[in-house]
């Protein structure tokens, strides 16, 4: 399992080299988007309208950060760890196909629809340590922009960050159809029977 450092805009070949289990660090631009930002972005796209951010080749970060505005009006990141990506599963396939980001960053993994979209559109999902919000904040070097703040609020709006070596991300979905969380899940399902027996929920041999 290798370690990779990529800079946005990320090219297709660089993404193809990544395999599940690899460690990845991203530099360049990443944009936060959670449930409501995904929904709004897709609504605008489907209505033929333009987004304030071009997601092509950059990272989408499932994150609702704590931000603070200084007296001079500048935003700084206080805490910015990943949120649970599973909630975005209902949007991500369409989002990847519509906007062509190269990396989705979050926690907890995503499902088979996202895995398929990653394979078709050459994208990866990188898992950042859940809750490690200060580690993430330390890798965010600049708040470049913010959109939809008034309408969606601080956790749900689009924060555009410039990052340096953002990570470590564990590549959990690669562009070859592999899904690390699904693999772990399969093993957990096998372990359940063993655990049932250990707890005498079912009898040994049963």
């Amino acid at each position: 399992m290798g370690e990779f450092h990529l800079t946005t805009p990320i090219i297709e070949e660089a993404v193809r080299r990544l395999k599940v289990g690899d460690t990845l660090y991203v530099s360049g631009t990443i944009v936060t988007a959670r449930d409501e930002a995904h929904l709004k972005a897709l609504e605008l796209h489907n209505a033929g309208k333009k987004l304030p951010v071009n997601f092509e080749g950059i990272g989408v970060f499932h994150c609702g950060p704590v931000m603070k505005k200084s007296e001079t009006g500048e935003w700084t990141v206080i805490a910015a760890g990943p949120t649970t990506s599973a909630r975005m599963e209902i949007f991500e396939e369409e989002f990847i196909k519509a906007f062509h980001p190269r990396i989705i960053i979050g926690k907890g993994g995503m499902g088979m629809r996202t895995t398929k979209a990653c394979q078709e559109e050459v994208c990866v999902y990188g898992a950042f340590t859940g809750g490690a919000a200060l580690l993430a904040a330390n890798r965010i070097k600049k708040v470049k922009d913010v959109f939809w703040l008034q309408e969606l609020g601080m956790p749900e709006c689009l924060w555009v960050y410039e990052v340096k070596d953002f990570g470590p991300l564990v590549v959990a979905i690669d562009s070859h159809g592999n899904n690390l969380f699904a693999q772990v899940n399969d093993r957990v399902r096998e372990n359940v029977t063993k655990v049932y027996k250990q707890l005498h929920i079912i009898e040994p041999g049963g």
Partner: peptide, 9 residues
Amino acid sequence: LKIGVMGLG
């Protein structure tokens, strides 16, 4: 069950 830290097994 071996879900593991962050569910990574």
